[in-house]
């Protein structure tokens, strides 16, 4: 037990065993709930992101919710395990590419002779979806989401990584 869990989880257990709150959290319980919950949260985040155009939601929230889901995973398991389950993406690169995507979307308008960051939208008849609205602002929003997600995760990841060093 001691060597398999470190980072946040070990810290979390320590504070539950400490003097403040005298409840024992069962790791198994947390992990089981997390398995389901994170899946739900991630799905919900996609919905939130896409809903942003017409309903509450959008890039900021979408990105943050994904970050929150992954943070939950970090908490329930440990950083290394979670990292192993994801494609090896550097979160910093993710954040920077988000910003770049947003900038490039803005530049696109310049190519068409419009002011920087002008957006266009139109209605198209797509198979399966029926009449669908497509807007370039969604691409900008993807950039926003990626930047938020990348930054939040890189902050949390760097800190927890540092914790591991600190522990040893």
């Amino acid at each position: 037990m001691q060597n398999q869990s470190f980072g946040i989880l070990r810290g979390l257990r320590r504070f539950t065993e400490g003097s403040v709150i005298k409840i024992k959290i069962n790791d198994v319980l947390l992990q089981t709930v997390t398995k389901v919950a994170s899946f739900v949260i991630l799905t919900f985040s996609v919905y939130l992101f896409l809903a942003g155009h017409h309903n509450p939601g959008g890039g900021f929230i979408g990105g943050l919710v994904v970050a929150a889901a992954i943070t939950l995973l970090f908490l329930a398991y440990d950083v290394k395990t979670v990292r192993a389950g994801f494609p090896p993406v550097d979160f910093k690169v993710l954040a920077v590419s988000g910003v770049l995507l947003a900038v490039i979307t803005g530049m696109g308008a310049v190519v068409f002779g419009k002011p920087f960051l002008s957006h266009a939208f139109g209605y198209f008849n797509l198979p399966l979806f029926g009449e669908t609205e497509l807007a370039t602002s969604v691409i900008f929003d993807v950039g926003v989401a990626l930047a938020v997600l990348g930054t939040a995760l890189s902050i949390i990841y760097t800190i927890s990584e540092d914790m591991c060093i600190w522990k040893r």
């Binding site: 942003g52 939601g57 988000g98 957006h119 602002s137 929003d141 926003v144 990348g150 939040a152």
Partner: peptide, 30 residues
């Protein structure tokens, strides 16, 4: 802007420049 969510329309379209710089700040903080 073809968007029914006014707040999001402001963020990504009307004041897109602010948002762009904002995520830049975010990135710098990261």
């Amino acid at each position: 802007a073809g968007a029914k969510n006014i707040v999001n329309a402001i963020l990504v379209d009307f004041r897109g420049f602010d948002t762009m710089l904002e995520i830049l700040v975010l990135c710098i903080a990261g």
